[in-house]
Design a protein around this nucleic acid. Structure first.
Lengths: 333, 333
DNA sequence: ATGAAAGCGCTAACAA
DNA sequence: TTGTTAGCGCTTTCAT
């Protein structure tokens, strides 16, 4: 693999001059003829810059770390696309590490990322990062996505969960529903949804009773199915369900089907996420769209700002209700 | 950020000795007391090895490149999980680049990866890589996944598509279907499926007629829906459809619903991929499972072998038919 | 068992 | 406009 010295030799110039031509430093302070010879040498040798070597000298690795729980986590793929949209334009490489939501993995990966001297970090933290994780993170320009780590002030790109809870509930309330429940997962990440949900209920003068909340242990189809079955079997079953995610919504639809309930006549269902399957399934799902790709783009742009020495504000991206066929007016009683 | 020299100084040894302790080179040729002092210094300074610097000297970056069309491509997330399962144990970092199926992007990314001196490459090629892409790839230990690039002999990890086509068709034939069609996408990647499909038909003495093949321009729900509508409206419509993917299968289910066809009474549907939603949807889909995570694991293990100087064989991983509710015997005529 | 010297490939700082 | 010198942080080689 040819080095810059090889190029320089072939072009009959010094290594430094070759470097200058390649990096466009010193705009016009290299003569045209020299530039030409260097370029010719580069082409002839198929020279490709050794980026890590450059990084060692110039203190910028041109890589950032992406530290996330899981790619399977519904919309991560799209977030990553968004990051790459911007990163590739900046010639930034993306080093990806998964935590599987385990603080220990997270700490280890973060440590590794620092060892690899990434210039910055895009991070979706676990629920309870270790103390050491926080310390390590503090040494690195960081943008968190989707979640803010407890008690720190790292710039973050969030989705307007409060509004999500609000629009979902408002939609159902407007349709005339009064007996509804929010199948929620108790995680810091989604707490604000409950706030928005409650706000909508309050607007319609509905008292905040336990009936309106149904907890699901985690974002899992099976677990949700069990809960949904219980819920819908009850004689006082709700006329509408807001599901913690589109996958949870699928579980509700399944339970409804098992019990012979018609959607949306007997039961309205609203999901979260606008996953690709949500409009492809047999009965298109009403859902709250999340600007996934946008999260990635904004996060990467934010990181670029940080790397440029600027400071950035937190960003909260808006959600949109997508009305489809799984929601409608409740049956006349 | 502390360097090895800082550690050495604090421990009162030379840089070289510190390096030896950290890397475990020279098994027992460093005295226990020295090791102890070095370790103490590392802990005190929170020293983390500068991996790129080490790489520069030792010629191994401990990073590999992952070059794939797209993360949204249904099962990529799981493949990546598989890669990481192995890579993280080997302390290998994963630099991810997307091609969006564009040969130019692919060439550019590959070039960048080489510039970053990755030790190896895991690659799902576009349909027609450029000449330069092939040349560049030739310089790098590579394992391709899911597709073999035309006319080259790069070791690859594939899924047994032929068998996939076969078991899908066989399943339907055993159920008694005779008028079926395979909604295929004409891409090198999936050509072998047609072969397996045809093999099953032949076993049942069915002549290979155009009726048995319905082309879909690409793996896209909308496009598939349009085709599926035409297909199912025909008076000579098939009693069973094998869809090119689970998403295409969703389109078929939708079209069937629109036309009032009962599944599986009026129409059986088989998908490919066993996507997570395939068993979560209202009517669980019969589908051919692909060992996605396994693909990643085997690919990474293969790359490890290559990096160790060994040669490896191509691997073809088996598929499994998952029978669910979308397939059944055809209605008596 | 430890260290000194050299150098991986590159760029920053200074000279000319 | 170009080159020289130095050194980023580490490991390899050779010496002791």
């Amino acid at each position: 693999m040819p080095t810059l010295d090889d190029v320089a030799r072939l072009a009959g110039v010094s290594r430094v001059t070759a470097s200058r031509v390649l990096n466009g430093t010193y705009p016009n302070k290299v003569s045209e003829s020299t530039r030409e010879r260097v370029r010719a040498a580069v082409a002839e040798l198929n020279y490709i810059t050794n980026v890590p070597a450059r990084a060692l000298r110039s203190k910028r690795s041109m890589q950032f770390g992406l530290l996330i729980p899981d790619l399977a986590f519904s919309f991560m793929p799209e977030v990553v696309q968004g990051l790459q949209d911007i990163a590739s334009k900046m010639d930034y490489g993306c080093l990806i590490y998964l935590t599987h939501d385990q603080p220990q993995q997270e700490e280890r990966s973060l440590s590794t990322l620092i060892g690899r001297r990434v210039d910055g970090l895009i991070w979706m933290p676990t629920a309870h990062p270790t103390e050491r994780t926080r310390t390590l993170q503090g040494t690195l320009p960081t943008v968190t996505i989707l979640v803010t780590p407890e008690g720190t002030s790292v710039p973050s790109v969030l989705i307007d969960q409060e509004e999500g809870g609000y629009v979902a509930a408002k939609h159902l309330l407007e349709l005339g529903h009064r007996r509804m429940t929010y199948m929620y997962v108790d995680h810091r990440h989604w707490q604000q949804r409950r706030v928005g949900y409650r706000r909508a209920l309050a607007e319609y003068g509905i008292a905040d009773a336990p009936f309106y909340y149904t907890q699901v242990p985690k974002m899992d189809w099976h677990e949700s199915l069990i809960i949904a079955r219980q819920l819908l079997k009850s004689p006082t079953r709700p006329t509408a369900v807001i599901a913690a995610s589109d996958v949870v919504a699928l579980a509700v639809l399944r339970a409804a089907r098992e019990l012979g309930l018609q959607i949306p006549k007997d039961l309205s269902v609203v999901g979260f996420g606008n996953s690709s399957f949500s409009h492809q399934i047999e009965l298109p799902l009403t859902t709250v769209d999340h600007p996934k790709r946008h999260v990635g783009q904004v996060a990467m742009q934010g990181l670029a700002e940080l790397l440029g020495g600027n400071t950035i504000e937190n960003t909260v991206l808006p959600v949109t209700l997508v009305k489809r066929l799984s929601s409608g007016p409740p049956q006349a009683v």
